[in-house]
């Protein structure tokens, strides 16, 4: 299963750059980014990166709070109502996710949908049981040609 890096972040100027700077210096490629802010002055930044474990360690070493969270990246059907159809199937699988974000992994051609399944141990089985295709890790991380 693939992982995203989730980072605790205050809503303050320059804090996001602190993250991107650490990753840039380490040559970690950010594939997708999603920022979940709360009204309480802080939020969670979810990153899909080329080397999640390395990124997580580096961020923690640089004084940030980062954690790895399991995600399932699903392909969206490439037509109108595609997301709606996907969500219906996820619901059918009984996978009740709380965090999700759309991502584009291939030059704007195909859209994907990443859902956080860290707290749902049998998510993979459930999703596959309704015929959903979970993208392989190296595809998600963009490392399959390396």
């Amino acid at each position: 299963m693939a992982y995203q890096v989730s980072i605790f972040l205050e809503n303050k100027l320059g804090h996001l750059e602190r993250v991107t700077n650490v990753l840039k210096n380490a040559g970690v490629n950010i594939r997708n980014m999603n920022l979940n802010h709360t009204a309480n002055g802080w939020g969670i930044l979810n990153l899909v990166v080329s080397y999640p474990e390395l990124a997580c360690n580096l961020l923690n070493q640089n004084g940030l709070s980062a954690a790895l969270r399991k995600i399932a990246v699903l392909k969206m059907v490439d037509k109108a109502g595609g997301l709606d159809q996907l969500l219906k199937r996820i619901a059918k699988a009984g996978v009740n996710f709380t965090t999700a974000h759309g991502m584009v992994l291939e030059e704007g051609k195909i859209a994907f949908f990443a859902i956080d399944i860290e707290d749902i141990p049998d998510a993979r089985e459930r999703l596959e049981a309704v015929g959903l295709e979970i993208m392989p890790d190296n595809y998600v991380y963009g490392t399959r040609f390396m």
């Binding site: 989730s6 980072i7 605790f8 979940n36 709360t38 969270r69």
Partner: peptide, 14 residues
């Protein structure tokens, strides 16, 4: 928030 408690989810922090 102590690092060792951070698991990356909003619900916990909330």
């Amino acid at each position: 928030v102590k690092k060792e408690w951070f698991r990356g989810d909003l619900q916990f922090l909330d």
